[in-house]
């Protein structure tokens, strides 16, 4: 890697009670661009990204150990406010989760309003919706309830909601797994555009998707990081047998 990494992960371990779901992971994520995290289900890839914005520890019995540095700053340091951290590291979840009691507009503005962030809300909402490629579809129905949107639109709304608080890093936890192919294609297109401005980490169980959208790919298995390299390398010429077995579909 040439420049200093945006995120540096050292000896990260994550637990659910006594079960260690993420084991001694070490990884550097460069600024801007897309890193994909792949692996069979239950391999700890979701848990791993949830450690990056300290969402993991919110689950009952869950905790994390190790170091995560964003721009050289400790994420798990004493006195670090996870709430402040999460404003810098946005997240989009597997299933779209717009707030059903709020309008489309209020959904996008929710982070601004609840965090009392300054700025022209209408302008920020429009900008975020444009960035999420949703503006043209909803600009005339901003007062409507988001539950009337399609699944793909809801997910892009959630991306807009995350972008509105102007994060530096965007974590996408299988953002297209609940969507149909057309909606998935739109999300992937969107990731392509966002890579210029954000550092994106995307978890996916779909290897083709990882190959299409990412610059670098990390392969997880049984909670361990098996291999991490450029996406091209991982999918054409992996160094480790397990990786090769997985990306070629020969996995048990």
């Amino acid at each position: 890697m040439t420049a200093a990494p945006k995120i540096r992960i050292e000896k990260l371990n994550a637990y659910f009670g006594a079960h260690r779901a993420v084991r001694d992971v070490e990884l550097d994520i460069p600024a801007l661009g897309v890193v994909a995290v792949i692996g069979p289900s239950g391999c700890g890839k979701s848990t791993f990204v949830r450690c990056l914005n300290r969402m993991h520890e919110l689950l009952p019995g869950a905790r994390a150990e190790g170091r995560v540095l964003i721009d050289g700053q400790e994420v798990y340091g004493p006195g670090v406010d996870p709430v402040q951290l999460r404003r810098r590291v946005g997240m989009v979840f597997q299933r779209p989760n717009p707030f059903p009691a709020m309008s489309i507009f209020d959904n996008v503005a929710a982070g601004l309003v609840l965090n009392r962030l300054p700025g022209d809300r209408a302008a920020i909402v429009e900008k975020s919706l444009r960035q999420a490629a949703l503006w043209d579809e909803v600009k005339d129905r901003l007062k409507e309830n988001p539950t009337r949107l399609s699944g793909g639109q809801q997910q892009r709304l959630c991306i807009a909601r995350a972008l509105a608080v102007e994060p530096e890093v965007l974590l996408l936890d299988e953002p297209a797994s609940a969507l149909d192919p057309i909606a998935t294609a739109k999300i992937e297109e969107l990731i392509h555009e966002l890579r210029e401005r954000y550092t994106i980490v995307i978890v996916t169980h779909n290897m083709q998707q990882a190959a299409r959208v990412s610059d670098r790919t990390a392969f997880f298995y049984m909670g361990e990081l098996i291999e991490y390299d450029t996406t091209e390398h991982i999918f054409t010429n992996p160094s480790i047998k397990q990786t090769e077995d997985y990306v070629t579909g020969r996995f048990g």
């Binding site: 919110l58 707030f99 929710a110 982070g111 965090n115 608080v165």
Partner: peptide
């Protein structure tokens, strides 16, 4: 998921509970 969505925006837990 709604709770997590708000927390991931950097909304404190108490505001998440009250306003979401």
């Amino acid at each position: 998921a709604l709770r997590e969505g708000a927390l991931a925006l950097g909304v404190p837990a108490w505001k998440t509970s009250l306003f979401i």
